[in-house]
Design a binder for these strands. Structure first.
Lengths: 331, 331
DNA sequence: TTGAAAGCGCTAACAG
DNA sequence: CTGTTAGCGCTTTCAA
């Protein structure tokens, strides 16, 4: 045995006085090995502190037992929750999860994705920031399945798991309209984001269905942080004709809106997309467009695994349903 | 070129009419390559859709560019936030992060850790559930650095990044005592957990420093969910001599206590360890033992990388400081 | 049932 | 500047 580095199967074989192949058989639990030999091998393994090199093992067979997950922004609890769900499925299937964040940067996303592919991963789950994903087409052709999560991708055949953004927003706004609200503000993050576009479209559909129009002055975009959303809501409520209700297109905006509304004691109705921790403990009642976030991540992972097992089927887009729920009002 | 599988450097070399080594040089951006040859190689790479196999590359050199992170429970936002911080450092250092959850199961932790080591990772960050980590001693000897996070490990030389649990709890309870409280309930999760033991010890220290004793009837352990904590608080407040203040040893307990206290309109003082999302929007004022959770994860990752670069130094335990802050009270 | 030999895709010496 | 020759640690034929 070489005195340097980790012991290898060759070292174990020498120590046990058997052939390399026998060691390999024992280590991998293959049948038809004489118990006596197996015992000697195991003994040598112990004595040497041998650990199998999984990388070398998969070099030949190309075993791909890790899943790559590229989130758009890991500092967002939404994506972290999804990562946890993906991790749970991966580990149930005895696979590993390698996780990275594109920071909403298309170039970074591409670099990360290609980098992971170079590591011969078994599949890739991406929350896309880039608009075109043909940079992955070669990998997909060669058998690495890709699943888009939360936002659709383009340029390659790949499954997508999305929320029913439009339906959820439509139902939420329809309810506000049914409650008699007419001046409903719609607060959004950057307009370019897929989910924002969809949720705005859903809100418009609700207005259209009621034969009404959404006042353009009440549509505010680009609210990327709670602080910015808070300021926007303050401004709206200070206006000549303030809204009687606000629809917040994501959880950060809802939080900002709440900060503004609660601190000024306003009674404006609030409905927000995305639930958040402790929403139940809020001092005032709000409505939330809720959904099963675990299902979102789990479904992505499961779809990936299915696709790995059976690449033949055509690619699908799956919509995760939403529902309106009550939150807060404990004060 | 073989018609099956992904193209290799040999294929590229054949296609470009150069040697394998030249291809390797071009792919790895080594200097001293004739621009003309380089162009031919790049051309062939393009034509074949060649992508480097990073696994094969690292087989020889033993490059270890991924960090393993084993959390105790990824469904807990505390660990998710830490994972995000670790991920940020990893990606800054151009390393990958593979993440898993032990689900507070020592056997699972061991399996995961050993599994990751088999994949030749460059280092391991563990939130330990197991009490003895000598199962990792061989890996540590062979040069895989291990860093314990949030809880200390044992049985191997490894750095640890911990919160100042004892100091934080002591300061919190000392403040309650200074405010005139004498009947202070201390609510804890399972007594076996390191952080709980430390926080309870801190609370006792504060009492001792004031020359007082903590009433054993007011120490409640085993509050693993908000619901259980809520019930416990309800019972305490219904008792003959209810506490005038409660110290909650983690965020889930704080939330449960808040549910009880807010819903019955009690004015009992609350101080909790760990901040949580939206604590600022709570309908009543509470005190929080806060700390920089990002620093916790980042420091673990940085320590791991330092150790990788310089294994010589002795192992250290680093305490992340805490501070008392005001939260809530917007209602 | 066991073993020898030939790779997997790449990098590291060492020559040209 | 370029190519040849060995491996990395393991799995996989194919014989024995």
């Amino acid at each position: 045995m070489r005195r340097t580095g980790r012991p290898t199967m060759v070292d174990v074989a020498a120590e046990a006085g058997v052939s390399l192949k026998t060691v390999s058989r024992v280590i991998n639990g293959e049948p038809h090995v004489d118990p006596g030999m197996a015992a000697r091998v195991l003994d040598a393994v112990d004595r040497l502190g041998y650990h199998r090199n999984a990388l070398a093992a998969s070099l030949r067979s190309g075993d791909r037992d890790t899943i790559g997950f590229i989130a758009a922004d890991l500092s967002n609890t939404f994506y972290m929750a999804i990562a946890a769900a993906v991790s749970a499925v991966a580990s149930r299937e005895r696979m590993h999860l390698v996780m990275a964040s594109s920071e909403e940067d298309a170039v970074r996303e591409r670099t990360l994705a290609l980098d992971l592919c170079q590591r011969q991963i078994g599949g890739l789950i991406v929350v896309p920031t880039a608009v075109d994903h043909s940079y992955l087409s070669r990998e997909v052709e060669l058998g690495t399945p890709v699943v888009f999560l939360d936002r659709p991708g383009s340029g390659i055949p790949a499954d997508a798991i999305l929320l029913d953004n439009r339906g959820g927003a439509r139902d939420a706004v329809a309810e506000l309209l049914a409650d008699g609200h007419r001046r409903i503000a719609v607060l959004l993050d950057a307009g370019g984001i897929f989910t924002m576009t969809e949720r705005l479209a859903g809100a418009r559909e609700a207005f259209a269905a009621a034969g009404l129009d959404l006042d353009p002055a009440l549509v505010v975009e680009g609210l990327h942080t709670p602080a910015v959303a808070r300021d926007a809501v303050d401004r709206l409520l200070d206006a000549q004709e303030p809204p009687t209700a606000v629809f917040c297109a994501n959880n950060r905006i809802t939080i900002g809106a709440l900060e503004a509304v609660v601190s000024r004691g306003s009674t404006v109705a609030i409905t927000g997309f995305d639930d958040f921790e402790l929403s139940r403990l809020l001092p005032r009642r709000i409505r939330i467009v809720d959904y099963d976030i675990t299902a979102l991540g789990a479904r992505a992972a499961e779809t990936l695994l299915t696709r790995r097992a059976d690449p033949a089927t055509g690619s699908h887009t799956h919509l995760v349903p939403t529902c309106l729920v009550d939150r807060g009002g404990v004060g």
